[in-house]
């Protein structure tokens, strides 16, 4: 049960949220893309070991989407930020246990 900082509501339990995978994947102009580029947009999302900027939506709270740095190895939570705002830097790798 992760403890997730909703930028609007504060810290809430994970089961109030839905996950939205990698953050910052903008909808491309579909007509500019080859089939394989379009397939990449459709299906490929970052899946790193370590810090990942990802999307969450506080569906059982304010209903708002936001982005969050989270470490996929330690489950440490980094800063949350709103869509279309400047992405904060990834937390230090050294902060892993």
């Amino acid at each position: 049960m992760l403890y997730i900082p909703c930028p609007h509501c504060g810290l809430r339990n994970e089961n109030e949220f839905h996950y939205g995978a990698e953050a910052g994947v903008a909808y491309p102009d579909p007509n500019e893309l080859s089939d394989s580029e379009w397939a990449e947009y459709l299906h490929i999302r970052a899946n790193p070991k370590g810090w990942l900027a990802e999307r969450w939506v506080h569906f059982a709270g304010c209903g708002k989407w936001f982005n969050l740095w989270r470490n996929t190895v330690t489950h440490e939570i980094g800063p949350a930020y709103l869509p279309f705002t400047k992405q904060p830097k990834a937390p230090q790798e050294g902060s892993e246990k």
């Binding site: 049960m1 994970e14 995978a21 990802e54 996929t72 330690t74």
Partner: peptide
């Protein structure tokens, strides 16, 4: 629900 390499999940 989320990506992880930690080999543990939520209770």
């Amino acid at each position: 629900a989320f990506n992880s390499y930690a080999q543990r999940g939520g209770f």
